[in-house]
């Protein structure tokens, strides 16, 4: 490209810039008004996005409190569950043992065994029988 070509191109750039700036400056009021309204809507949309009412402190405090309460409840639920879970079978096993039919018979005849111990002649007969056998 020659020096002249380059100079002409710089001239075109400069003139284009001037004409464009003038045409922007000469925009009519109606167009400017519509652009202002569009700008206001965009800025409002950005503001709404920044200030999310669901994330406002006044809303976050009760939400945070509820979350803390839920966590506390979960902890209370979980911590005693481990020992209870292991103790429960033991308790059940003891109950099973206590409720076995044989042992209940023993407790029902407890008075008879006490009376028997108070009868010496019966004990002597039993002792002699043992010696013979």
């Amino acid at each position: 490209m020659t020096e002249l070509d380059s100079s002409r191109e710089r001239e075109i750039e400069q003139r284009a810039r001037e004409l464009f700036a003038e045409s922007v400056a000469g925009l009519d009021g109606h167009t400017r008004s519509r652009l202002s309204r569009a700008r206001a809507a965009a800025v409002a949309a950005a503001g709404e996005r920044r200030w999310n009412p669901w994330l406002a402190p006044s809303r976050l405090v009760p939400v945070g409190g509820a979350a803390a309460a839920l966590i506390a409840l979960a902890l209370v639920w979980q911590i005693p569950q481990a020992p209870v879970a292991s103790a429960t079978p033991v308790v059940l096993n003891d109950l099973d043992l206590l409720l076995e039919g044989e042992n209940l018979d023993f407790f029902e005849e407890l008075e008879f065994y006490a009376w028997l111990l108070e009868q010496p002649e019966l004990l002597e007969v039993e002792a002699s029988g043992d010696d013979k056998g």
Binding site: R34, L35, A38, R39, A41, A42, A45, A46
Partner: peptide, 10 residues
């Protein structure tokens, strides 16, 4: 232009 402004803003 309105669309572009809104997109940039949001």
């Amino acid at each position: 232009v309105q669309d572009a402004m809104l997109r940039l803003a949001t």
